[in-house]
Simulated assay, not measured.
Amino acid sequence: MDKVQPSAAAAVRDIADGASLAVGGFGLSGVPDTLIQAVHALGVADLRVVSNNCGVDGGGLGVLLAAGRISRVTGSYVGSNKEFARRYLSGELEVELVPQGTLAERLRAGGCGIPAFFTPAGVGTQVAEGGLPWRYTPGGASVAVASPAKELRAFDGREYVLERGITTDFALVRAARGDRHGNLVFHKAARNFNPLAAMAGRVTIAEVEQLVEPGELDPDEIHLPGVFVRRVVELTPQQAAAKGIERRTVRTR
């Protein structure tokens, strides 16, 4: 039952080329940076990532992206990551853009063993009708791969589109507190996609800012039960304190 690993490197040791990863975080909040750095050091490539966004230039998943380690991204937001946009538009990266709520539910559904579900989000758009550019030809002159049309069905006089649940080979998440059994507690906005990503991974690895012993967490405060978590990495105080700010906004004194 003790799921604690000696290091982040040991925790990600069996992630191989071509693996799929569900990664928690939103912007730079709740991003498992230590595990991402360990994957980068591992040297694996052709990774297929599922995450709300792909980090920023030089931060989060942007580290793997800049190194050319990611071949496909399923997410909701390109944001201000210029390298992400450049690779996508030049045909170096395949990108499946998904409505944010749909992405969250696809991860949750996959974790619950639900293969697919119907949602009204995207009906009447290319999300349902197909044709969204997934990959451009080299140089970006034309679309090489486009999204397919999805099944539509009417319920009580309203149309819904069929979306498939997502499961991945691995999941990387970050929590504020965790015990040796893998029970996790997230802090405020850093909770975001982390529990959903953790549910979708066949092997979920969690980095925790504070490691406690089993029984120290009140069962009522646990956000994700340890049944979803395979490995736990305790962060050093320096790693726990290192939290990036995507956009710093201050006002004139």
Rank of each mutant, 00 (worst) to 15 (best):
R106L: 09
R106N: 10
R106C: 15
R106F: 07
L107E: 14
A109E: 01
A109R: 00
A109G: 02
G110V: 13
G111R: 00
C112D: 14
G113L: 02
G113S: 02
I114C: 10
I114T: 14
P115M: 05
P115T: 11
P115D: 14
F117D: 07
F117S: 06
F118V: 01
F118I: 00
T119L: 04
T119F: 08
P120W: 12
P120E: 12
A121G: 01
A121E: 15
A121F: 06
G122H: 10
G122Q: 09
V123Q: 03
G124Q: 04
G124R: 03
T125W: 12
Q126C: 07
Q126N: 09
Q126G: 08
Q126H: 05
A128S: 14
G130N: 13
G130I: 14
G131V: 13
P133R: 02
R135H: 05
Y136M: 04
T137F: 01
T137A: 15
T137K: 02
P138F: 00
G139V: 12
G139L: 10
G140A: 13
A141G: 14
V143T: 15
V143D: 09
A144I: 03
A144E: 07
V145Q: 07
V145K: 04
S147D: 03
P148G: 10
P148N: 07
A149Y: 05
A149S: 15
A149Q: 14
K150S: 13
